[in-house]
Simulated scan of single mutants.
Amino acid sequence: MADRPRRADARRNYELVLAAAREVFDELGATAPLDEIARRAGVGNATMYRHFPTRRDMVIAVYAEEVTALGELGRTLLDDPSAVDALFTWLRAFIAHVSTKGELPLAITDDEAGQRSALYRDWHQTMHTAAADLLRRAKEADAIKPDLDVADLLTSANGIGRAATDAAQIDRLLTIVRDGVTR
């Protein structure tokens, strides 16, 4: 039997809980009290658990939303007039994602079906595709060194996201990478 569409109030409550979870996880981390999420969403615990039966379900929903947004940003930036600006705009968003959301996927417990591995693969593919498409466009515009590999670029950006101490340092390090790979 197919899932029935959610009622308007159920959709609204789902979105309220998801937004509150995103906010609370950003502030307190993936182990934040779930009661705090329900409180900020303005719903009861039963409503929250009806939408997200476990913390794992909630973390997956929040992280999946973030990855989807990065993929959509990549597709949108393919229309930017400057291929290299588009690439580095996306890399900046990716770095911000790594620096603020890095603990979320680590908080997802594995299951017998191997769902966590499948999710990781899908999320990795979404980010890799966005970066590869933007990099390919920048190479076609002859704005990037032709030997630059997308995996190396993402590894560098990931390192910046994990190591930088603040936004100013992120910007400085990303400028160093940009200066090193552009023509």
Rank of each mutant, 00 (worst) to 15 (best):
F94Y: 15
A69H: 10
K145H: 15
I176D: 01
T76P: 06
H97Y: 10
A167T: 09
R162P: 05
D133Q: 15
L173W: 11
L106W: 14
E72Q: 15
T76L: 08
V177H: 04
T68P: 04
R121N: 14
T165E: 07
T165I: 11
A143W: 10
D35I: 09
E65A: 15
D147I: 13
T47H: 00
L134T: 01
I95L: 07
V181S: 01
A131W: 09
M127E: 09
V17W: 04
V62Q: 00
P105W: 03
D26I: 07
H128Y: 15
A138I: 03
Q115K: 12
V62S: 04
A10K: 12
T182E: 09
A46K: 11
L104V: 06
R178N: 01
E23M: 07
L154C: 04
A157W: 09
R7W: 09
V59C: 02
L28A: 15
D179Q: 12
N158Q: 12
L87T: 00
N13L: 06
T54E: 05
P146A: 11
R178F: 03
V43Y: 04
I108S: 03
Q169Y: 06
G44Q: 08
E65V: 01
W90Y: 01
L174G: 02
L87D: 01
A38Y: 05
D171A: 08
L154F: 03
V59I: 15
A167P: 05
M58I: 03
K145P: 07
G71V: 05
L174V: 00
M48I: 02
P81D: 04
S82Q: 05
A8C: 07
T155P: 10
T155M: 13
H128L: 15
A2F: 12
E23L: 08
V17H: 03
A61T: 06
G102P: 06
R22A: 06
S117R: 15
P81W: 07
A164E: 01
D26T: 11
S156N: 08
A32R: 08
W123H: 06
D80Q: 06
V150Y: 09
L153Y: 06
I37S: 03
A10L: 08
I95G: 01
K101L: 11
I108E: 04
V84R: 14
T54F: 10
K145N: 12
N158T: 13
M58F: 03
A19W: 07
A157Y: 03
D166T: 04
K139C: 03
R11E: 11
P81C: 05
M127I: 14
G71E: 05
D142N: 13
A83Y: 02
D26M: 11
G114M: 08
G74F: 02
V84W: 09
T165V: 10
L16V: 02
P33A: 14
H97I: 02
Q125V: 12
L78S: 08
D57R: 14
V84N: 05
L148G: 04
R75Q: 13
A2M: 12
W123N: 07
N45Y: 12
A141G: 05
P33T: 06
A93Y: 08
Y120G: 10
L135D: 00
I160T: 02
D166W: 00
R39D: 03
D57P: 08
H124E: 10
R183Y: 12
